[in-house]
Simulated assay, not measured.
Amino acid sequence: MTKKIYYSSPYTTEWETIFKKSFTKEDKYFVVLDETAFYPTGGGQPHDTGTINGIEVLDIFNDETGEVVHMIERLPETTQAFCSLNWRRRFEHMQHHSGQHLLSAVCYTLYNAKTVSFHLGQDYATIDLDLSELNPSQMEKIEQTANEEIYHNRSIHTYYVTSEELAKLPLLKMPKVTENIRIVEIEGIEYNACGGTHVLRTGEIGIIKLIKAEKQKGMIRLYFKCGLRALQDLNEGQQILGKIAAKFNTGRYEVMGRIEKWEEEKKKLESELAKVKEEKNAYVAKELLLKKEGDFLFHVFDDKSFDELKNLAIIMAHDHNLFILFASTLENKAVVVHNGTKNVPCGKFLKEHMGSFNGKGGGNDKSAQAGFPTLEDTLNFLDFSRRELLKKIKN
């Protein structure tokens, strides 16, 4: 069995060993080392990366026998293995795994919330807590307490215990394994059975930054970042805030006031614009009514969005008891509308005819719409529909 250096010496970044076995399976290449510091995926922690003889390590996992298997880009040509670990990735994993233990302990101490599961992804880490609610003030308390424990720089010990020794430890959750039981102890905080890699002291976690909390299957999923990732996230947030402040020509601490003022001005302008549109539509409607043919009104707009003309069509159909066919050449879309008093089902009419003009759409008896790939298709459909609808309405 491969010697697992990642347990005995988790800060090892380079080492020399030999290949115990190499093989190919399904056009992929695998090796087993005599000793390895590459951590395999497991316990919520992703695998390490790095190189073996300059060859990229793509994946690391435990096979069915418990052996550590390394998937690499190609098979090596020698029996000697010179290994180099991607230390930044490993250290981020160590920061987050130790950070998770500390965060889980704080959540339990403060709110009696047990951690049900842990996941460490590329962008953030999560724990699922057996809580139904977690408000912002509680999150602030958790974050503050966890970071205070980081500043105390408590020792983190890892060691193996027997079943008899395990029974004497105050674990919240008993491990599934009965042999090679590995304990991670944060001095004065908690004991936890764990197979992950960890830093030696809480100070190395750097910082724990809570991102958000959301409900997930009756529990609370807490998103967080630690150490290097948390610092990067905070720096990116500062840069974004700085750019927003520059847009409003103000300082970072005054930016919220400026945004609130901008929102008020925006609402006022939107209200004024709505009044202008309403007045304009009234004028347009008055002009359009001069074009109606009995109860039928047809018009093609080249200066209105489809949403605008659709709203106008609905209002005019209701107010003037009309059957309306409007279209927009800006978007190559058409709408047919009436107030329910006409004997032509709009949706059925479109379904029967729009396909002949490469159109797609649908609707109900009183309103339907269709879009067309080209202006030519749109105009051909409108020419046909105008003639057909006039016949149907007169009948």
Rank of each mutant, 00 (worst) to 15 (best):
M1W: 05
Y11L: 12
Y11H: 10
Y11K: 06
T13E: 15
W15T: 00
W15M: 01
E16N: 10
F23G: 08
F23M: 09
T24W: 04
F30C: 09
V32W: 04
Y39H: 05
T41I: 12
G42Y: 15
G42I: 13
H47L: 00
H47P: 02
G50S: 13
G50V: 11
I52V: 12
N53F: 05
G54L: 12
E56F: 11
D63Q: 11
E67K: 08
V68L: 09
V69I: 15
H70Q: 05
M71V: 10
T79I: 11
Q80N: 10
A81L: 14
F82T: 02
C83M: 07
N86P: 01
F91C: 02
E92F: 04
E92L: 03
H93E: 06
H93V: 08
H96I: 04
Q100W: 08
L110C: 11
F118V: 13
Q122H: 11
D123I: 06
T126R: 11
T126Q: 07
L129M: 04
D130Y: 08
S132T: 08
S132D: 06
L134K: 02
N135M: 00
I142Q: 06
N147D: 14
E149N: 04
S155W: 11
I156T: 05
Y159S: 00
V161N: 09
V161A: 04
T162P: 07
T162I: 08
E164D: 15
A167R: 07
L169Y: 12
L172V: 03
L172K: 13
K173P: 04
M174N: 15
K176L: 08
T178Q: 14
T178G: 06
E179A: 14
I181R: 10
I181D: 07
I189E: 14
E190L: 14
E190V: 15
Y191S: 14
C194V: 13
G195R: 14
H198S: 05
V199Y: 09
G203V: 05
I205A: 14
K212T: 10
E214T: 12
K215S: 15
K215E: 15
Q216K: 05
M219F: 05
R221F: 06
R221N: 03
R221C: 02
F224A: 01
K225C: 11
C226R: 02
L228H: 12
Q232W: 08
L234R: 02
Q239M: 00
I240W: 00
A246I: 01
K247Q: 05
N249A: 07
N249T: 07
Y253F: 10
V255W: 00
V255L: 01
M256H: 04
G257H: 08
I259M: 05
K261W: 02
K268G: 00
L269Y: 13
E270G: 00
E270K: 14
V276D: 09
K277C: 02
V284S: 06
V284C: 01
A285M: 14
E287N: 14
L290Q: 05
D302W: 11
S305L: 15
S305N: 11
F306Y: 14
A313K: 03
A317F: 06
D319F: 07
N321Y: 13
I324W: 07
F326E: 05
A327K: 15
A327M: 15
L330A: 00
N332W: 15
V335Q: 02
V335E: 01
V336F: 12
V336Q: 04
V337L: 01
H338K: 07
G340P: 09
M354D: 01
G355M: 12
N358T: 04
G359L: 03
K360N: 06
L379M: 15
L389W: 10
K391T: 09
K391M: 03
K392L: 11
